[in-house]
Design a binder for these strands. Sequence first.
DNA 1: CTACCAGTTCATTTTCTCTTGAACTAGATT
DNA 2: AATCTAGTTCAAGAGAAAATGAACTGGTAG
Lengths: 173, 173
Amino acid sequence: MPVASLTQTAPSDVAAPEFSRECVEFFSEAAQIFGVPPSVGQIYGLLYASPQPLSFTDIVARLGISKGSASQGLQMLRSLGAINAATHDDDRREYFEPEMSLRKLVGGVLNGRITPLVAAGPERIERLRRLADDGGAAKDFYLDRVEQLETWRSRLKLALPVLNTLLGPKRGR
Amino acid sequence: MPVASLTQTAPSDVAAPEFSRECVEFFSEAAQIFGVPPSVGQIYGLLYASPQPLSFTDIVARLGISKGSASQGLQMLRSLGAINAATHDDDRREYFEPEMSLRKLVGGVLNGRITPLVAAGPERIERLRRLADDGGAAKDFYLDRVEQLETWRSRLKLALPVLNTLLGPKRGR
DNA sequence: CTACCAGTTCATTTTCTCTTGAACTAGATT
DNA sequence: AATCTAGTTCAAGAGAAAATGAACTGGTAG
């Protein structure tokens, strides 16, 4: 009979819907900046603004998005390490909370974007080097350019872990 | 009379077209990863692979893209600080070279993306804090979340300049 | 003055990404 | 067995971003 399973908010809690909408909006935009679909940002924003963990169903109901979007959005958030799921025993649905570590959040996105670039590099750069090698008159020029790519790659590779600790709690001085 | 103004390549230079196509392809993909349109990456890639600076007309001809794309693409590259233009006197067209400093390249993109987020934050966070303040029962929770946003913001703000020097030549140890 | 060349602007079209909704799986509940 | 609830999958639709192409500006050469 518990028809409305949407988490009950205390009656005095007048600001909650406003606060929530504001967060949803904010993270929706922030997500886009990081190249993540807005609906994914919305979900994170909703979780961020919620004192209680929310279930799949809650999310669909509160954001008014389709089950499909919610499902895919949650998958992406999982794969980015941006949410934590816990399953209340005696209840079969999962409840989600936002990951609060900036390092994990940004790290998740960077891993999904920069890492492939840095990782896929070597074979590609090798290929370029081979092409440069029979570059005729401008051979030196081409080899320089390939060198430059190598340099960039290694600098990015170096920068990532530093960024990582830099975004971590406290220790970065 | 000079009908074919496309920069002449030495006859022995057999690998050049291959090398060029490879670079165009590579930077096209890299651009997408950074949220920049592929055509813009292509232009940069073409310049990157060219021993001589290229003109607007060269770019259109070699990439086979429309004048519109080329014009807009060059504007974006300019605004990102990703190219340098020089105007050979006695010739009214501009010739473009790729910017080779990783710091400037990445910096340009980051400034266009992260900076707005960090900059637009304060007003927004203030608004959220006000909402949190009349948050009823969960007021403490909401204020915590707002605090967290502040913390994130300041850490990002701190990280940007560090990243900047980190991508610069040598000095980053 | 006319024609041309280099480049810009912007409305239209194309392309791609995101979202939706319907069909489906699987574990409870009656 | 039949129905419900929770969630997934994926083809198709809607929307946003990018590319095109035609009309335009302004400078130069004949």
